[in-house]
């Protein structure tokens, strides 16, 4: 079995590269989106706040696979045609933005009200207040849960299989359909997902216990 695994590994690793690329780009676009949503949700402008909450609720309420289908199969009807890679990034980034907005929001609200009042009374404008006072403090509360969430994003890229994205799971399926060793190849794929996820999770725990003290 191990000989087989070594033989399959190059193919799977190519798939893994795609998975990681989609993960990275989705985070790169999705996290700023999440931060933007968070600011929207705590905005004093009522319309902005309600509109953002609606978008976030939709983003969290609609299953990621449905979003993927809408983007990949649905948007061409509106004239927007995306390749599977781009479609996966767009869909996962949107999903990430919606889910992480809550993490960002909690982080922003963890900054004591008094610090914000101090910043205001000193005459700092809104952007300086966010940039120099709120975000640096919020970051401590935000980083660990965001890293944990990045593991979920990585695993979610396996849904890309459904829109023919040549990611890790898809590569495994291709190998299985040629060799009929489905059990073996899927176990190997699963172990690869798990190995990376566990490493990141351990890392987060380490950071957590360090910052807690």
């Amino acid at each position: 079995m191990f000989e087989q695994w070594i033989q399959w590994l190059p193919g799977l690793l190519t798939g893994l590269q795609t998975s990681l690329a989609v993960t990275g780009l989705s985070l790169l676009l999705g996290l700023p989106l999440g931060l933007l949503f968070a600011f929207g949700m705590i905005s004093r402008t009522r319309i902005l706040r309600q509109a953002t909450i609606l978008i976030v609720e939709l983003g969290r309420g609609i299953p990621l696979l449905v979003v993927l289908y809408v983007v990949y199969f649905g948007l061409p009807d509106g004239g927007i045609v995306l390749e599977s890679f781009a479609a996966a990034v767009v869909a996962i980034a949107f999903n990430t933005g919606a889910y992480t907005s809550e993490i960002f929001r909690a982080g922003l609200l963890s900054v004591p009200r008094g610090h914000i009042e101090a910043a205001q009374s000193l005459g700092l404008n809104w952007t300086d207040e966010a940039r120099y006072i709120v975000l640096p403090q919020a970051l401590r509360a935000i980083v660990p849960p965001l890293m944990s969430y990045s593991v979920i994003v990585f695993q979610a890229t396996s849904l890309g299989y459904a829109i023919a994205l040549p990611e890790l799971l898809n590569s495994a399926y291709q190998i299985g359909s040629v060799t009929f060793e489905f059990l073996s190849v899927f176990i190997l794929a699963g172990l690869i997902y798990a190995a990376l996820s566990i490493v990141v999770s351990r890392f987060v725990d380490a950071i957590h216990s360090k910052t807690a003290h």
């Binding site: 004591p112 008094g114 610090h115 009042e117 101090a118 910043a119 009374s121 000193l122 120099y132 006072i133 403090q137």
Partner: peptide
């Protein structure tokens, strides 16, 4: 300028 009961220095 304002000074608060809880100081509110940026930590």
């Amino acid at each position: 300028g304002m000074v608060f009961q809880s100081f509110n220095l940026f930590p």
